[in-house]
Design a protein around this nucleic acid. Sequence first.
RNA 1: GGCCCCGUGGUCUAGUGGUUAAGACGCUGCCCUCACAUGGCAGAGAUCCCAGGUUCGAAUCCUGGCGGGGCCACCA
Length: 787
Amino acid sequence: MTEEIAKRWSNEIEEQITQKWVEEEPFKFNVDDVIKNNKKVYSIDTPPPYVDAPIHIGQAVTYSMMDMFARYKRMKGFAVLFPLGLDRNGLPIEMAAQKKFNITPEQVGREKFLEYCRQILEESSNESIKTFMRLGISFNSYKFGENIGQAYMTDSNDYRLLTQKTFYEMWKKGLIYEGNYISNYCPGCKTTLADSEVVYEERTKKLWYVKFKVKETDETIIIATTRPELLGSCKAVIFNPDDDRYKHLQDKTAITPLGDEVKIFASNYASMEFGTGLVMMCSFGDLTDIRFFREHKLEPVILIDENGLMNEKAGMLKGLTVEEARKKIVEWLKQNDAITKEETITARVPVCERSKHQIEFIQVPELYLKQEAFKQELMEIAKQINFYDEASRQMLLNWIESINQDWPISRKRYYATAIPLWYCEKCGNPIIGDEQKYYEPWKDKPPVQQCPKCKHTKFKPETRVFDTWFDSSISCLYILGYKKHDDFFKIAFPCTLRPQGKDIVRTWLYYTLLRVYLLLGKAAFKDVWINFHIVDAKGKKMSKSMGNVIDPKQLIEKYGSEALRLWCVVEANITKQDMKCKEEKIKAETKTITKLLNIARYIAQFDYVDESHISNQTDKSFLEKLNELIDLCDKCYDTYDFHNPAIKLKHFLWEVFASHYIELTKARAYSNDKSAVATLYAAMKRLLLLLYPIIPIAASYIYERLFKADILHENFPAKINIKAEVDFSKIQEINSIIWKYKKEKGLSLKAELASAVLPELHKDVIEDLKRAHNIKQVFSGDNIKIE
RNA sequence: GGCCCCGUGGUCUAGUGGUUAAGACGCUGCCCUCACAUGGCAGAGAUCCCAGGUUCGAAUCCUGGCGGGGCCACCA
């Protein structure tokens, strides 16, 4: 007796099945088996979500899609490496700790502060993991551990040790150096930022018109500036070479309100339209200033210190933040009658991607990883990888093209991977750690007793930590067991797929390709799948402040995870554009699940008949349509396209299978015609297998009841070996005409028809048509006619 | 300023040289027919952004325009 198939789909069924998957770990990655039996590996470098935030709709959708990739590849015989990672590094943890315990790292000291951070992480709910479980994401394991395929955390000693190991490798190759350059500095995060972490935003700013004097002629000139606090670092006043108003000032000397004397000359950097056409060049208000100083070999005066405060060179502004300094100098200038006008302008300003504070440019020593020298090679790498969608490649190429300095990898922060360096107190010689353990120099001793250069025995520990992307950019190496499981790594590298959002192309994707290229000389991935975002029903970006955030947990609660999974592939192609999220559309997909369930219930009332009994031409004609679908799905799934197959599968389910085939063959099925029943089972089996990657929970539920087997162990279906004489579309067409005729005549669908003229078709098909539509007599002819 | 993507019924999407331009959501009407009322059937609703061009033929290819979006560079 077949176990009863539910009439309605429910969250209880979903929970029961997904719970079982979590407990029994059927997707476990077996490294030994892979190595011993030389299995082909398909690996996914999953993007670790941030621990403390519950997962958002975009993650729910993209992880569901990754799950489809993973499940499809398993059906195709791959050993699929699909690990769950959690990102636990970086500033958000520090900020949360500071806020919750109302402390600052400066107050409590490094070790104590790290403890507070760990406490925050300890209390983190792991909410995201529960949602992944509920969505049926087939991670290799939901248990944390250090074996291949187990769930991992980016702040584990194991992960951090690999970060340090790769650091040694690059250090030894001479790719890392200490440089004292102008860096992006975020006053909010109190740290240096790489260019990739800087974005531009439209902001309103004040523009002040300040009086300068010309020394030689004593005339007053007016200069517009948004950065009066940098007046003390002014080294030149410029005007556009075509600006007739100021040509007479060439090579004269300007006196700033502070009394400094600077040269006046022409430069293309000045635009005639902006302000008064005269510009004061300071060190450094923006990137143009930096370039200008370099080109004119001017000695910069740095007024802002490593902490973002005005230093002693700033005179009366010393100790103030930049904001405070600006206020104070404006007041002072006003008192001295040096300001003629004040305007509000809008301009695009560089801001910190995370905290949105305006970037300052300050000079700080940082460790740099060489990248500028490898632009060409990386462009080549970018061209070798398959991009899905192909158009996404351009985002990466654009970014590589625009790189114009090396990557600062050190940060003055705390909760991140330690930089394993010590410096000889006598000669300053840097000492690196070794691969034995994860080092924290401020509390660990270096692996050597004395400085190899001067034999001195005292060392100063490095207290800076790595940029969080320096960790993240080796995730693909970590999951493949780099420098740990050499025999596995050898066969599994490069990683097959990197799935990720378009917003982190210039960080996560770029840095990973850079790191892996520098370490191994190859592309890190075979395929890269870039997703766009989920936006609200109106196409607006979801944000807490707008109040338009859609919580995936609530959607699952209301409609189930299968409806959500089906919706996200049917709705649109997320690799091409943002996808709008409308609840009604998700709700609508519950109907498809119900339909599938009910077709299964219909089939289950007949005793199973195997495929060898398929002989009827109607049946063969129908199955041939399914064969086409098998081909299409296979071809599309292989290129990460689930959108088009999902639409076709839905259509097949509703139209071809339910409306036409089942209605046409009911008479035969109820009279236990072996060919008809065998066809129902054969078709349903294929259809479930095709749907399985998309809606695995429902597919496995039905499969188990109809075929008494676990769908997880099945292969991707092969085409059914049949040859049909009739095109099923032709049959559908005739059905529609007859249904429409009866409708128009106000006849019931069961009403008897005296006769019909139908095209020449196989007798099996004519017989089914006669019984389905209750036609007494059928004549053949080219024009369909019903009476 | 450079590069890229998109513009199909009210809404969201398919279709990428020849189709009566497809589907879903929404809307209207009829029907509880023994798998399914979380259903079935039917209907209304599209100058396929505009203008040229290529072609026997264009929503589909080309050019220009208009509109929307993205990435990068960036004005003191």
